[in-house]
Simulated scan of single mutants.
Amino acid sequence: MTQARGRDRDDAGRARSARPRDGLGRPLPYGEPGVPRQPEGIVRSPERTVTEAQALLDSGRPFHAHEVFEDAWKTGPEEERPLWRALAQLAVGLTHAARGNPTGGVRLLRRGADEIARWTGPAYGMDLPGVTGWARALADEVALDERPVDPARRAPRLR
């Protein structure tokens, strides 16, 4: 990481914060210990994507799971991008719900659920109706009770 014009940059010169982050992806002050970030741009098989994202969700790190789904969205076949984008939205929705942002959590959980419900392509072993039901139920709960949720306890079962 380098700094140019006051902004952190990655080795390719793209803006990317070098600040450490906590388990929910919130920036911490420079010099604080943080949770290791997910590397960007990793090309994974769909099955590996699901396995890695599930492990991150299970450990209470939905922000990091979102980054794994985002890699699939950005590096996978064009026709599969809606699936991976929707799963990334669900992970970010859980992140917002865990951070205590009910509005963002509800919005992203519902948006992702709607996209997955429309998906007619391959499921890669995922229980997409179950994931959709999980997202809608969590969105309804967060809308009624705005307290932060425990992301590990409320993680979806993708398979």
Score class of each variant (00 low, 15 high):
residue 27 P to Y: 14
residue 154 R to S: 13
residue 39 P to G: 08
residue 29 P to I: 11
residue 61 R to P: 02
residue 101 N to G: 12
residue 82 P to M: 11
residue 151 P to R: 06
residue 33 P to I: 14
residue 142 V to G: 05
residue 97 A to T: 02
residue 149 V to W: 07
residue 58 D to A: 12
residue 92 V to N: 06
residue 107 R to P: 05
residue 50 V to L: 03
residue 122 P to V: 09
residue 45 S to H: 01
residue 102 P to C: 06
residue 143 A to T: 11
residue 147 R to L: 06
residue 81 R to S: 06
residue 63 F to R: 09
residue 118 R to T: 10
residue 40 E to M: 15
residue 110 R to G: 01
residue 156 P to T: 06
residue 65 A to L: 05
residue 103 T to V: 15
residue 101 N to L: 12
residue 56 L to Y: 03
residue 91 A to K: 00
residue 79 E to I: 12
residue 43 V to F: 01
residue 49 T to G: 06
residue 93 G to Q: 00
residue 158 L to D: 01
residue 105 G to F: 03
residue 137 A to H: 10
residue 37 R to M: 12
residue 95 T to F: 00
residue 126 M to F: 02
residue 64 H to E: 14
residue 76 G to F: 03
residue 27 P to N: 15
residue 104 G to L: 10
residue 55 A to R: 12
residue 9 R to T: 06
residue 87 L to K: 00
residue 2 T to F: 14
residue 70 E to H: 01
residue 100 G to T: 11
residue 56 L to M: 09
residue 80 E to M: 05
residue 11 D to E: 14
residue 78 E to Q: 15
residue 113 A to E: 02
residue 27 P to R: 15
residue 80 E to K: 05
residue 2 T to C: 10
residue 124 Y to H: 09
residue 138 L to S: 01
residue 125 G to L: 03
residue 68 V to M: 01
residue 71 D to F: 03
residue 56 L to S: 06
residue 155 A to V: 05
residue 79 E to C: 10
residue 55 A to N: 11
residue 55 A to W: 08
residue 7 R to G: 08
residue 77 P to D: 13
residue 146 E to V: 14
residue 14 R to I: 10
residue 59 S to D: 10
residue 56 L to A: 04
residue 143 A to F: 08
residue 133 G to I: 02
residue 128 L to Y: 02
residue 117 A to C: 04
residue 22 D to I: 09
residue 40 E to K: 14
residue 31 G to Q: 07
residue 136 R to E: 09
residue 11 D to V: 15
residue 114 D to H: 10
residue 37 R to L: 14
residue 15 A to N: 13
residue 150 D to P: 06
residue 86 A to I: 13
residue 22 D to L: 13
residue 88 A to I: 07
residue 142 V to K: 04
residue 15 A to I: 13
residue 35 V to C: 10
residue 129 P to H: 03
residue 124 Y to S: 01
residue 109 L to A: 03
residue 8 D to A: 10
residue 63 F to S: 13
residue 130 G to P: 04
residue 95 T to I: 08
residue 134 W to H: 00
residue 129 P to I: 06
residue 102 P to D: 07
residue 48 R to S: 11
residue 122 P to L: 11
residue 90 L to N: 04
residue 87 L to P: 00
residue 72 A to D: 01
residue 141 E to S: 10
residue 12 A to R: 07
residue 3 Q to I: 12
residue 59 S to I: 04
residue 7 R to K: 15
residue 31 G to V: 09
residue 5 R to C: 13
residue 152 A to C: 08
residue 1 M to S: 13
residue 67 E to F: 11
residue 62 P to F: 00
residue 136 R to Q: 07
residue 92 V to Y: 02
residue 51 T to D: 14
residue 132 T to H: 07
residue 137 A to G: 13
residue 57 L to S: 04
residue 144 L to V: 13
